[in-house]
């Protein structure tokens, strides 16, 4: 069936993209200069390296007729899990970054642009 092949191929591409994102995130976490930029790399790993391949796994399951009806369960669980990581990943990264910034737990240098400080200056805080 054509659509099954399309699902499998798109799924495999997504898994490959995920693998690339994970490697990029690992390099970023090791090489980036401070906590906040490393957190960005970690989020690349969480969204690109976990959500995208999870969606890919769901598509691969949909394109595997040998799984029978179970492929719909696998795909459903994959998409739900992907969606939940997508919601949780950004909220977790935001909470970590905000807490670190407020508590001044990590050095901010080198800093290119600090929108929060600018906003506080505008408000006169």
């Amino acid at each position: 069936m054509l659509w099954e092949t399309v699902c499998s191929v798109v799924g495999l591409i997504l898994v490959a993209v995920g693998a690339f994102c994970d490697i990029a995130a690992a390099i970023g976490i090791n090489r980036f200069p401070n906590f906040f930029v490393r957190l960005h790399a970690a989020t690349v790993g969480a969204i690109g390296g976990a959500v995208v391949p999870t969606f890919g796994a769901g598509l691969i399951a949909l394109g595997s007729p040998e799984l029978g009806n179970y492929r719909f369960f696998v795909a459903g669980v994959s998409f739900t899990t992907g969606l939940m990581i997508m919601i949780l990943g950004q909220a977790g990264a935001h909470a970590l970054a905000r807490a670190t910034l407020k508590a001044k737990a990590a050095p901010l240098e080198p800093c290119v642009h600090n929108a929060l400080r600018e906003r506080e200056e505008v408000r006169g805080e």
Binding site: M84, I87, L88, Q90, A91, H94, A95
Partner: peptide
Amino acid sequence: GMSLIVKTTTRVLMPL
């Protein structure tokens, strides 16, 4: 409590 972003996410996730 934490920021609005985290609170909203929690509100979405808690029933799940």
